[in-house]
Write a protein that binds this DNA or RNA. Structure first.
Lengths: 341, 341
DNA sequence: CATTTTCTGATTTACGTACCTCAAATCCGG
DNA sequence: CCGGATTTGAGGTACGTAAATCAGAAAATG
């Protein structure tokens, strides 16, 4: 049988109250007594029954998610995941609040962080915009003792409890390797299509991609990066322009959102050999394109995993528990048409 | 505030005892009264607090994992994952027992299933060997009302609660696409190296691989499948023989274990152009080979995810709760040297 | 040595549910 | 309308922990 606090009290020869003081780090216990209790805990292998503890505390974990009010498929999906978990939250003594902020708005995000801090939640997760004002606000939250996790996009210099997102440099490198190998002997330049280079994830993906191309496929010409601002119409315009300027365009790596526009532009091209296309985020549009052989590979981050992971980690940090690190690492999923979920 | 049984009782105008009888399906309640209570539950959106309920029942979820006593890296890793979770289990009112059976031993596995059934656990997970005797034993467990999950390898015709493993046909197809595209214009035959075609996973991988090769790369010559029995020495022998017989060997798809032997054989070849190598399961050996550019891609199933998923599902089934399906789908991980964890 | 401060023990209540007992109310057939 | 069966109510205890109160003991302080 699992030992309980009563067993610890009996074994250590102290009262329940003293055991409670030691276990919960309250004052009013001599060092010797504390050690006796700790020895008993170690000897009996006591582990606190979290379910019972939470019941007794009638604790409700109160988490806040700050999400950008973006309308691209990925962010919509991410929000849906948070909402799903928020609905399930009641079952597990949790309350999850979602706060909206305008996308890429530094001041609004900083203000939202300060507002969330005022609520004193048990944990906070947010999609970072990489700016000093955001860093300051985030540090205020962290300093208040609230565990903070960054979601999808990280914040430079911030000592967050957790980053729930992928290694974007590695993602770019992966795309580079796939691009180089899928192209093989085929000649022609490759177009890198960003969302915005103001965002850290996109910069990192580009760096990784360029590094691999330079290292392993040095003969391949990379066209100058173009930025589609995560906007389908703009992406379509840019890609169509690239097709016009470079009839021998051999590859496109799109590492931002707005891929519906890219796919429209692909469809509009003639029946000739299409370029190798590698892009990010599995959505209904990119999935359909993959199945129809209009694109070659999709790199994806699992939004559901990211949200669940952030919740698990924040909850664990909130009560100082440990975490299965490996479970919280967000994979770079590579989807070909054959392994679509 | 979340409603409690007390709120239900008050709302329905009945006593706590009656609410309890309804919620737990005990006899002695008139149909009209039962409906009143159920209406109250629906109206207030009551959900039973499982933590409190388990505390009251002093319930311990008792799970049994039946694992083959295999000595390949994958199975060793899988076992380690189960052991890790078993250690953590105490914290979460769980007890996980591990039962060993000789690998590929149908009678032993069937006997182990029957033995486990005698313990009346709350859930059972096992690595299936695809045979009628195993199916019979598994059905006996299932019929006894115990949720059963298959792990890694599935059991044909078995109506399990859950299969915690990858879609091996899709994995084979994925390998086929990568192989075909990585080879591109390069000529030469491809060797499929199985562990054993007696195992369903390996058969499915082969089928998927061959299907894609035939559909999309019909000119590529596939050598006859060889079986390395998941044994490094045998794999090494077979691959070396293939090199000798086919100096222009262009590709190897290894979908069994024992890849240390395959890698040794690769190392032993001369400095010429090595074949494209795609294999399964990320281990220290395959990881090192990937980093050194001695192989091209590793398809992997995350053993940790599989184990955690099996536990979550069995627990949920044991108390009739729902499951986040998407969280329980085991991905086919594709690792290149760039996205290694 | 008296007084304050710090520590410790004993006891109680609470969390939300399960499960038990005993008595009272209601139902049903005759 | 009676007798027996069924249904319902009231109340309690239990699970393992948290947290509070209050009294008494030990230690530190003057």
């Amino acid at each position: 049988m699992k030992p309980t606090v009563h067993d610890i009290a009996a074994y250590a020869g102290v009262s329940l109250a003293t055991v409670d003081r030691v276990l919960n780090g309250r004052a009013g216990v001599r060092a010797v007594t504390r050690e006796r209790v700790e020895a008993a805990v170690a000897a009996l292998g006591f582990v606190r029954d979290m379910a019972a503890a939470n019941l007794a505390k009638s604790r409700v974990y109160h988490l806040v998610f700050i999400l950008p009010a973006n309308d691209n498929s990925f962010m919509i999906g991410l929000r849906a995941q948070v909402e799903t978990m928020a609905a399930r939250a009641a079952t597990e003594r949790m309350q999850i609040d979602i706060v909206d902020v305008p996308a890429f708005d530094i001041q609004a995000l900083a203000a939202a962080l300060d507002a969330a801090l005022a609520f004193k939640p048990d944990g906070l997760a947010f999609v970072a915009v990489d700016a000093p004002a955001v860093l300051d606000a985030a540090e205020r939250v962290r300093t208040a003792g609230i565990p903070v996790a960054t979601l999808v996009s990280d914040l430079s210099g911030f000592r967050r409890a957790h980053f729930s997102g992928i290694d974007n440099n590695a993602a770019g490198r992966t795309a580079g390797t796939l691009m180089g190998r899928f192209l093989a002997e085929r000649r022609g330049p490759v177009l890198p299509l960003a969302g915005s280079l103001m965002v850290r994830d996109h910069r990192e993906r580009l760096e990784g991609f360029c590094a691999v191309m330079a290292e392993r496929f040095p003969d391949r010409v990379l066209l100058p990066v173009v930025e589609g601002r995560d906007d389908p119409a703009e992406a379509e315009r840019l890609v169509t322009a690239a097709f016009d300027a470079h009839p021998d365009l051999a590859g496109i790596y799109s590492f931002g959102a707005g891929n519906r526009g890219l796919i429209r532009s692909l469809n509009a091209q003639g029946a000739g050999l299409r370029p190798v296309v590698i892009l990010h985020e599995l959505t209904s549009a990119t999935r359909a394109a993959l199945l129809d052989d209009r694109i070659d590979a999709v790199l994806n981050q699992d939004a559901g995993h990211e949200v669940r992971s952030a919740i698990r980690v924040l909850k664990a940090k909130a009560d100082g528990a440990s975490v299965v690190d490996e479970q919280e690492r967000i994979r770079i999923d590579i989807f070909l048409k054959d392994n679509l979920p």
